[in-house]
Design a protein around this nucleic acid. Sequence first.
DNA 1: CTGAAAGCGCTAACAA
DNA 2: TTGTTAGCGCTTTCAG
Lengths: 304, 304
Amino acid sequence: MAHPTLEDVAARAGVSRALVSLVMRGSPKVGKERREAVLRAARELGYRPNMMARSLAAGRTGMIGVLLSDLHDPWSSAVHDGLADEAARRGVRLLLATGRGSPARERAALDDLLDLRPDGVVLAGPKLAAADIERAAARCAVTVVGRSVRSDRVDCVTGDGAAAVARALGHLADLGHHRVACLDLGPRPSPLRRACPDVAAGPDELWRAPAPPTAVLALGDTTGTGALIALLRAGKRVPEDVSLIVHGDPPGARAEAVTTIASPPAELGREAAALLLERIGEGARSTARRVTVPPLLNERGTVR
Amino acid sequence: MAHPTLEDVAARAGVSRALVSLVMRGSPKVGKERREAVLRAARELGYRPNMMARSLAAGRTGMIGVLLSDLHDPWSSAVHDGLADEAARRGVRLLLATGRGSPARERAALDDLLDLRPDGVVLAGPKLAAADIERAAARCAVTVVGRSVRSDRVDCVTGDGAAAVARALGHLADLGHHRVACLDLGPRPSPLRRACPDVAAGPDELWRAPAPPTAVLALGDTTGTGALIALLRAGKRVPEDVSLIVHGDPPGARAEAVTTIASPPAELGREAAALLLERIGEGARSTARRVTVPPLLNERGTVR
DNA sequence: CTGAAAGCGCTAACAA
DNA sequence: TTGTTAGCGCTTTCAG
């Protein structure tokens, strides 16, 4: 039998379908005797409940949808880690979907996800239009990670980039670095530039000044090693000649022992899952919550 | 109405449920008149078919499950890109799950995925026991990517590491490099070492030889910049002093213009999707297929 | 082209 | 504790 059903299990165990259903859902009000008979029959048959049928009948799926805007962004994967941890702890299943970097595909993915009727969805770093998010919120509980959305029906969990920059600068100052340059490596100017005292256009420019910086804070370094390589290529030793802190914490930074600062994405994920499950539990709630996760300094080998 | 049903649409359009069902599935045998009335009603109501109900009734879900062993591995994301492309082209939906790097979690994720009754699954880089894969194959069509499985019911799509090494070595030789060293940076020794003539334990060792290498082939460089940084730190200019080819094609290599060689993972994904859909279409088929995707050289800036 | 009817595998009352 | 009875929203016949 390719896919035994509840009925097959009931027949084999010699009990009713309802009893099997109770056992499968772990109801306490079934006698030890029969419970074990059912469990044995299920095991022998290789029975697995059909989620489609179960969800349809129950009216809830017990799953939460997760839309990761871009699988290639390590930030998304890290958020997912946090979500998965929390979901596993609470016994809910995750339904993953991805936007593959484009708002249009993201929107399509969200629609497909919603068709599966998850009890709620978390949107990680969505590039979606606000209207699309609002539309989703009309269909199920929604929490957004990494973006602040003005809506009274969606919860938001965000990091704190400005605090990260301030903390990095403070840390460097404590170490005696008073000439700190910011390097913005991203394809687009980082919004965090405003939080920086002194932003260089490119790495070369740094050493032309009369008093060159003794430390660099890198923004938009997606691989985590871009700034390090630029410094190395300029003939600087790191950290002997110049200290380096990168904002964000991509795997390359870990691998090359680059000191970084960022609000830990896994933490964002964990918070988001907690918020979403709470909201699902309460049914509709009027107040939207906003959680901000503080930055964490990862001291590694590029600062002295 | 939070979730209008087929019946609501039928009522609003003034037609039968069956007709709406036909229209929603794009049947050609519905008159233009009525089709448009139905479509309009559906749009006005914001109707979306309930996949749970649809799948349950139809006996197929029209979805294929994708188990990515590790979301943090860029290889997985790239395989997913190929799968998603091909799936979009053929109008099937993807159901994502992840093993988060651990065989146990991978196994649990696979079980959860299977409970959703996908028409087939593709296992990308599974760390699963062969028995678990076989078990999955008993429940639906399975194709494995990036690992060769001995089974006559699962298709396999793999890259060709040995060919990649040979091709890289050949390319360097054509350029006049006759002293090429291999650097194995991975946590575990790469199986590709056997394909290399000369493997150094670490970067430092390279320059102690009387005739130091003029080119380096890096294995197991997961970030794609590990070898470059090691070379730079050793005071070598790349490619002026030494040429570098990295096996694999992680984002860091692209960002830092490192020349790489690998069987393109997106291509593996595309092949896998095609194979799986073919197998699903045919129902059970006896012969398992194995596809090998040849390596591709990505000429960037680290070879001369 | 339409409407009625049966059923996918399961849950959730309710009765027994 | 158990069995019975309705559905969940949809697809699929089949006779009109």
